[in-house]
Amino acid sequence: MPLAEIPLCVWRKRSRSFVFRGQPIRYWTAGQGEPLLLIHGFPTASWDWHYLWQPLAQRYRVIACDMLGFGDSAKPHKHTYSLLEQADLQQALLANVQAEQPLHIIAHDYGDSVAQELLARHYEGRIEVASCVFLNGGLFPETHRPVLMQKLLLGPLGWIIGRAFSRDALVKSFRQIFGPKTGPSESELDDFWSLIESNHGPRIMHKLISYIPERRLQRDRWVTAMQRDEIPLRVIDGEFDPISGAHMVARYRELIPNADTVLLPGIGHYPQTEAPVQVLKHYLEFRERLVLPPRKVAYS
């Protein structure tokens, strides 16, 4: 049975706002119980989770924001964007909504890197993470295969490429990374573009793309955190994804002890919108068999 979508216009009306380092951030929260933080990817926003939002809110307290530079949050032009700052933002959001720890996380794409930073901080005693599920993302720089647009944004003319980014360019990029039968509709593409275009988003895309080299700098610290094998982890991955598909999962199985992975055949880079029923099924299965250790903070 398909999951009901939340139209973007409704999603936007349900948002709230708080200020992070002088910048307005849009966020959402619903449900009760254990906190579940949803962290979106590049270049989209928290509306990516709209199919899963209500089913998860029936079981947990779900929390999400449009990160700095994304969606309907502030997109300051004269700003150096960083995954580490985005992790700071997530912690500020949790404090703002008074979410008690330990914290469960579902992350996607760019958000995977933010979640990896939060895992590393768990072992440094700076946050308490109970579990983490990764959807398609560059968990290992050596397996990340950026699309042409990302490569161009990283180049010396990235600022020009970003400013020229259009709905047509988004459609071209998305056609490369979605599954052959699960691509977004024209209406969904309009909504994705609306979130990217909001607050003059294209003019900072070349700044946001700095996450790719930043991943390389943090690679060992983040992979070491995942290898500790003290926090339950699972990867739910669209196999067809050319960026972080089956080849990334193969590397994950090589490097991570007791690797818990699920591959979704025919699904691309956005499993939460391409196959939300499957993602929900595999996430709830993960949580149902989850046995939490005694509440404590582990230190490195």
Score class of each variant (00 low, 15 high):
residue 192 F to T: 05
residue 237 D to T: 15
residue 255 L to M: 13
residue 242 P to H: 09
residue 254 E to N: 10
residue 212 I to A: 12
residue 253 R to K: 15
residue 214 E to V: 09
residue 198 S to E: 03
residue 254 E to C: 13
residue 222 W to I: 02
residue 218 Q to R: 14
residue 219 R to D: 11
residue 231 I to W: 01
residue 196 I to Y: 00
residue 232 P to Y: 12
residue 195 L to G: 02
residue 247 H to E: 09
residue 253 R to C: 13
residue 237 D to K: 02
residue 188 E to C: 02
residue 222 W to D: 00
residue 196 I to H: 00
residue 243 I to P: 04
residue 194 S to F: 06
residue 220 D to Y: 04
residue 210 S to Y: 03
residue 193 W to I: 10
residue 217 L to V: 15
residue 197 E to H: 06
residue 218 Q to L: 15
residue 212 I to F: 06
residue 241 D to P: 10
residue 189 L to T: 07
residue 220 D to V: 06
residue 193 W to F: 05
residue 217 L to D: 08
residue 194 S to Y: 00
residue 250 A to W: 09
residue 254 E to W: 04
residue 216 R to S: 10
residue 198 S to M: 07
residue 201 G to E: 01
residue 240 F to G: 02
residue 210 S to D: 08
residue 218 Q to H: 09
residue 226 M to R: 10
residue 251 R to P: 05
residue 239 E to H: 08
residue 205 M to I: 02
residue 241 D to E: 11
residue 202 P to V: 03
residue 219 R to W: 04
residue 195 L to Q: 14
residue 249 V to L: 13
residue 207 K to H: 10
residue 202 P to C: 01
residue 224 T to E: 10
residue 246 A to Q: 11
residue 245 G to M: 13
residue 240 F to V: 04
residue 207 K to D: 07
residue 214 E to Y: 12
residue 245 G to E: 08
residue 243 I to C: 15
residue 222 W to K: 09
residue 206 H to S: 06
residue 215 R to Q: 13
residue 243 I to N: 11
residue 253 R to Q: 15
residue 193 W to Q: 05
residue 227 Q to A: 07
residue 215 R to H: 09
residue 192 F to K: 01
residue 235 V to T: 08
residue 208 L to S: 01
residue 227 Q to R: 13
residue 193 W to T: 05
residue 200 H to A: 11
residue 202 P to A: 04
residue 214 E to P: 09
residue 199 N to G: 00
residue 188 E to V: 14
residue 244 S to Q: 11
residue 238 G to V: 11
residue 229 D to K: 02
residue 213 P to T: 03
residue 224 T to H: 04
residue 201 G to C: 00
residue 229 D to E: 06
residue 254 E to L: 14
residue 205 M to W: 01
residue 230 E to Y: 02
residue 203 R to D: 12
residue 195 L to A: 12
